[in-house]
Amino acid sequence: MVMWKTVRVLSVLVLFHLHCVPKPSPSILGVFILPLVTQTSATFTIESTVPSNGATGVSLTPTITIVMTQAIEPTSLNTNISCSPSCPSLTGGSSNRTITLTPTTALTSGVTYTITLNQNIQSTFGLTLGTNTSFSFTTL
Rank of each mutant, 00 (worst) to 15 (best):
M1K: 09
M1I: 06
V2E: 15
V2Y: 10
M3D: 14
W4M: 10
K5D: 09
K5W: 11
K5G: 14
V7A: 14
R8M: 14
R8F: 12
V9C: 01
V9W: 10
V12D: 01
L13W: 02
L13V: 12
V14H: 01
F16G: 15
L18C: 08
H19G: 13
C20E: 02
P22Y: 00
P22K: 06
S25R: 12
P26I: 10
I28R: 12
V31G: 01
I33E: 15
I33K: 15
I33M: 14
I33C: 13
I33G: 00
L34H: 10
Q39N: 12
S41G: 03
A42G: 08
F44Y: 14
F44A: 03
E47M: 11
S48L: 07
S48F: 07
S48M: 13
T49D: 07
V50I: 14
P51C: 03
S52D: 07
N53A: 13
S59N: 13
S59P: 02
L60C: 10
L60H: 08
T61F: 05
P62K: 05
T69S: 13
T69E: 03
A71I: 02
A71F: 01
I72E: 01
E73P: 00
E73L: 04
S76E: 06
S76H: 07
L77H: 04
L77D: 07
C83S: 09
S84F: 11
S84A: 15
P85K: 08
P85I: 09
C87D: 09
G92Q: 03
S94I: 04
R97A: 02
T100V: 13
T100R: 04
T102G: 00
P103I: 06
T104C: 03
T105E: 08
A106H: 07
A106W: 04
A106R: 08
T108Q: 13
S109V: 11
S109D: 13
S109G: 06
G110H: 05
V111L: 01
Y113H: 03
T114H: 01
T116G: 08
T116I: 07
T116V: 05
L117K: 06
N118F: 07
Q119P: 00
N120R: 12
N120Q: 14
I121V: 15
I121H: 03
Q122F: 01
Q122Y: 01
F125S: 10
L129K: 05
T131Q: 10
T133S: 11
S136H: 02
T138Y: 06
T138D: 05
T139W: 07
L140E: 11
